[in-house]
């Protein structure tokens, strides 16, 4: 169920058990839909639609400039950047970088711990 960009090359050599390769894999919406399908008794089609709905809701909220805080996962924050002078690194020519909004993700302590193989009690909002 975990489909990987690198799986083709090693499919013949590795054991038939999926997800057993050491190489890093890339998950997509398909994998999230599968997780939703396993968690609630919905069809695969509806599971996929719900994944998209959640992502759209997150995007629409962020586009409005609103911060999204997902407890024990992390926060998505919109930052407004002022105009500044940049430089083309290849040519060295100065170019203005216009003011803009950027999206930053601040991982929660729980997520940071999990990525390091640790567990941490739930906390924060």
């Amino acid at each position: 169920m975990v489909k990987s960009a690198s799986s083709e090359a090693e499919i013949s050599a590795s054991s038939p058990k999926e997800n057993s390769t050491v190489e890093s894999q890339t998950l997509t919406r398909v994998n999230l839909a599968e997780a939703v399908y396993r968690s609630v008794g919905l069809s695969r089609k509806e599971s996929a639609a719900l994944v998209q709905m959640v992502l759209s809701e997150l995007s629409d909220t962020l586009v409005k400039g609103e911060t999204v805080k997902l407890s024990s996962f992390g926060s998505f924050i919109i930052r407004s950047k002022a105009e500044r002078i940049g430089r083309n690194p290849k040519t060295g020519i100065e170019v203005p970088i216009t003011q803009r909004r950027v999206l930053v993700f601040k991982p929660s302590n729980v997520l940071k711990a999990r990525v390091n193989g640790q567990t941490v009690a739930e906390e924060e909002e």
Binding site: S24, Q25, T26, V51, L70, S72, F73, R114
Partner: peptide
């Protein structure tokens, strides 16, 4: 389920 799946993937080192 969505957030857990992302967390699990990252804890395996996946993208």
């Amino acid at each position: 389920a969505i957030l857990d799946e992302i967390t699990k993937a990252l804890s395996r080192g996946d993208r």
